[in-house]
């Protein structure tokens, strides 16, 4: 029972403000890795993914849980702490899961030509998140950034949809980074 009631923000206005600043900086500067704290979601969900859920989701944001993330413990935790309705992938505004559990990405909403903001944000759990690997360029990046992405092709075809497309929050332990649809990903 305590596992359900615990693990949320102790001081939501302050903690969510700090968490959002990390998310804002991450989305504004793709590839930068930020440390976040304050959430203790049920295993196997990372602290950073829990922080993103607590900061961004509520009863107005349909959420999709993919693969092992779709556990009884997490469903109840989300129900208590955020109230986000759990939905199939094609109705989701947010989705949470490991990269391979979220596949195929074509299930998620990429927005409409008149309203490209009506697209899903995927919270992707990764086993590692380092400033090395794929080369990132585009808005928010002065020269180039490096980020260890699970693959290249999916992000390249997502970029090709611009201004439509998915946005990604990448989480690993207490660390997070973001990859908006505007970023150009190259395997160099």
């Amino acid at each position: 029972m305590n596992a359900i009631l615990g693990g949320g923000f102790a001081d939501p206005p302050t903690q969510s403000a700090h968490a959002f600043r990390a998310l804002l900086e991450a989305m504004a500067r793709p590839g930068r890795i930020h440390e976040v704290t304050g959430a203790a979601p049920p295993a196997p969900i990372s602290v950073a993914a829990g922080v993103a859920l607590l900061t961004l989701t509520d009863s107005t944001t349909p959420l999709h849980l993919a693969g092992p993330a779709d556990s009884e413990a997490l469903r109840v935790w989300i129900g208590f702490h955020t109230g986000a309705p759990l939905v199939p992938a094609d109705e989701a505004q947010f989705a949470l899961g490991h990269w391979h559990d979220l596949q195929p990405l074509s299930r998620f909403r990429i927005g409409e030509p008149a309203y490209p903001d009506r697209s899903a944000t995927l919270i992707v759990e990764l086993d590692q998140l380092e400033s090395q690997g794929a080369r990132l360029t585009g808005p928010g990046i002065r020269d180039e950034a490096r980020l260890s992405l699970p693959e290249i092709g999916a992000f390249r075809s997502n970029r090709a949809l611009f201004p439509l497309g998915l946005d990604f929050i990448l989480t690993c332990g207490s660390r997070l980074a973001a990859l908006p649809r505007s970023t150009i990903v190259e395997d160099i």
Binding site: S16, L23, L24, M27, T55, L56, D117, G140, D167, S182
Partner: peptide, 16 residues
């Protein structure tokens, strides 16, 4: 709840 709504809009605004 209002701040969350604005924050979601801000992240989409940065992405596009």
């Amino acid at each position: 709840q209002t701040k969350r709504m604005i924050r979601r809009a801000l992240l989409k605004a940065l992405a596009i």
